[in-house]
């Protein structure tokens, strides 16, 4: 833009002129402003965060969960009984919650409060580790699987083979030959949990893989990982986040099923799954044995659903305005 001429008829800087002079003023030249092309500074994650915060229920639930998580550590300390010091007592069995036993007692007369909170700690730990591991493994494998055609066959075979052998067989063999412990359970669950995520990601990659902008990228010679990370993954974020959110409660449920079959955690490691399984026989008569662990599991599940959904919605760039 040529600003140094004033050969526009009828326009004199600072000069006098007709009444039209009042309608127009000269714009000043600023170099930085001239180069400016976008309207506002946009940071994806900050937008996501802001969007997420707008969803009140989700924010409230995440607070609730954080408080719950901290409380699992605090509760053991403030309770009347230490978890390691619990002992069976025939005279105290099946007591409803009262002043001394805040959550009542179980079928052996042991304090339920300490049991529930200690189990919650274990379950949350296990679910978190397994969830993160599953997602990492699943996303990486899913992306490669869906994008690199030559590997599609290999991964499909691998998926089919691992998926079609009933997990029970693996879990029984592992339990018999390797043993049962927290670490073993976490590793085994991750090793079998990546499958549905990978498959889901692979299907979505299929959908986006051959869009024109990807063809363009390939033509331009963009590297594999950059395409995956920058072109395709952003479309998948909402799905990934939802999967992560859902894997946490499903790990807790799956661990409960495994305990039901005797393949779960070591008998000395309590977990919400085990408490729920035991409560099943008693809950119609003594509902509190079920209600307390179920409420905690429900709070965890609800939190991750709401937060997951809200975060998922927030991750969609079209919501960022």
């Amino acid at each position: 833009m040529d600003m140094t001429t004033n050969n526009k008829p009828g326009l004199h800087p600072g000069g006098g002129g007709s009444a039209a002079d009042d309608l127009f003023t000269f714009a000043e030249y600023r170099h930085a402003q001239a180069e400016f092309t976008a309207s506002t500074e946009y940071s994806y994650w900050r937008s996501v965060w802001r969007n997420f915060l707008r969803n009140k229920p989700a924010v409230i639930m995440s607070f609730v969960f954080i408080i719950l998580f901290i409380f699992t550590f605090v509760a053991g300390v403030i309770g009347n009984y230490r978890y390691d010091e619990l002992r069976p007592d025939n005279k105290l069995i099946f007591l409803f919650p009262n002043d001394e036993f805040w959550f009542g007692t179980d079928n052996l007369g042991r304090d339920y409060w300490s049991q529930v909170w200690y189990a919650a700690q274990t379950s949350i730990k296990l679910a978190a580790i397994v969830g993160v591991g599953e997602i990492l493994l699943g996303v990486v494998i899913g992306l490669v699987w869906g994008y690199v055609r030559s590997l599609d066959r290999f991964f499909t075979e691998l998926y089919n083979v691992v998926n079609n052998v009933p997990t029970i067989i693996y879990m029984t063999l592992i339990a018999l030959m390797v043993g049962q412990s927290f670490l073993i359970m976490a590793v085994s669950l991750i090793c079998f949990g990546w499958l549905p995520t990978a498959r889901n990601i692979r299907n979505m990659v299929f959908i986006y893989r051959d869009r024109e902008y990807n063809l363009a990228s390939r033509c331009l010679g963009t590297g594999l990982w950059r395409i995956l990370w920058r072109n395709i993954l952003p479309y998948l974020i909402s799905v990934v986040v939802l999967r992560l959110a859902l894997s946490i409660p499903s790990t807790i449920a799956y661990e409960s099923t495994l305990s039901y079959l005797g393949l779960g955690l070591d008998v000395n490691t309590p977990s919400l799954g085990i408490l729920l399984r035991n409560a099943r026989s008693y809950f119609l008569d003594f509902p509190y044995l079920l209600i307390f662990p179920a409420v905690i599991v429900s709070v965890i599940t609800i939190t991750f659903y709401l937060v997951g959904n809200a975060f998922s919605d927030a991750c969609d760039p079209r919501n960022h305005l």
């Binding site: 499903s250 409960s256 809950f283 119609l284 179920a294 599991v297 429900s298 659903y305």
Partner: peptide, 17 residues
């Protein structure tokens, strides 16, 4: 959402009971 969450939060064996 409440329905979905409820069904998934409560352990299946309890729901069935």
């Amino acid at each position: 959402t409440a329905y979905t969450v409820f069904v998934n939060a409560v352990p299946t064996l309890i729901t069935y009971s």
